[in-house]
Simulated assay, not measured.
Amino acid sequence: MLVKWIRCTVVDRRGFERGQRAWAGLLGEPGFRGQGGGWSRRRPDVAHVFAFWESRAFYDSFMARAHERLAAAQSGTYKDIEVRLFDHRFDVKTGFEPRFAEADVARVAHCTVHEERVEHFALMQQRVWNPAMAGSPGMLGGVFAEAPGHEFLVLSLWQAAAERGKYRAERLERLALRAETETDVAALSGDVVRLDAAWTV
């Protein structure tokens, strides 16, 4: 499965939200699995969108045919767009499906990992982070995905911000020590996204 992460700074919020509805046109596209997104809780002008495709071939076909027509509805409403593609490596909590209806919040972590630590990082995600997240109340599921250049995306969906809040602070510090995260990771950025049901396709 291919995971697409789009992050952009929005200059016309109302126009962007209106244009976001045009992406309903993705329904019925061969290989399309689902899409959702919303606004950053830290920076109200930043929007995140997450899209899922069966494979790179289906995605490339869509980009060559229908993408420009759908994207035109949001033309001029944003600046500084960043688009990144990742290959699904494994689920965070088994049986992940790109369904956003039950989720209020998404947590996204983007990591660049030292080359010699890549396998250790992935192993710690499976053995330390995944069980901790999977056992947290309100955590619905997620994906661990990889891009060339030792880049990783960890995306998790949560029922409510309050539930994700319980998972934080001292517990995260303990887990990071166990997983040797500081040794593995060269750069880390992340965000908490308040999902907008109207953006779900």
Rank of each mutant, 00 (worst) to 15 (best):
H150I: 00
L155S: 03
Q126R: 15
L70R: 10
Y59S: 11
R99S: 13
Y78G: 06
A22K: 10
S75G: 12
W158P: 06
P148I: 07
P137D: 04
F90P: 01
E146R: 06
A122R: 13
A66W: 01
E116L: 10
V113A: 02
Q20M: 14
E151K: 12
T181W: 12
R171K: 14
G141F: 03
D91W: 02
E151A: 11
E116P: 02
R117T: 05
L26G: 06
Q126C: 01
V143I: 14
V113Y: 00
A197W: 03
E163D: 15
G149E: 03
V113F: 01
S75V: 08
F52L: 07
W5T: 07
E170A: 11
E54D: 15
E82K: 13
R164T: 00
R13S: 13
L157R: 10
H48V: 09
R164F: 11
M133Q: 14
L140Y: 05
H67S: 09
R174Q: 12
E102P: 09
A186I: 04
D104Q: 15
G34N: 09
A66V: 00
G190A: 11
H48C: 07
D104I: 03
P30W: 07
D12L: 08
V201D: 00
V192K: 06
Y167E: 04
V11K: 11
V49E: 09
D60P: 04
S55F: 05
A187V: 02
R89I: 07
R117I: 04
R174E: 05
F62I: 11
L188H: 13
S55E: 08
M139I: 06
D12A: 13
G165L: 05
E29L: 12
N130F: 02
K4P: 00
E170F: 10
V46P: 01
P44R: 11
Q20I: 02
L85H: 14
G37K: 03
L172N: 07
F16M: 12
T77F: 14
V185D: 01
H110I: 09
I81D: 05
S40C: 10
R14C: 06
A103Y: 02
M139E: 08
G28T: 10
W199P: 01
T181A: 13
E182N: 10
E116F: 12
R14Q: 14
L155W: 01
W23E: 06
T94K: 08
D104P: 01
F32D: 04
H48D: 10
G36F: 08
E146G: 05
G37N: 06
V46S: 03
S156F: 00
A145E: 04
R42I: 04
R164V: 02
F86M: 01
Y78A: 13
P30M: 08
R174K: 15
Q35K: 13
E182V: 07
R14L: 12
F96R: 04
A106T: 11
L153G: 02
E182S: 13
E116R: 14
R117W: 08
Y167A: 15
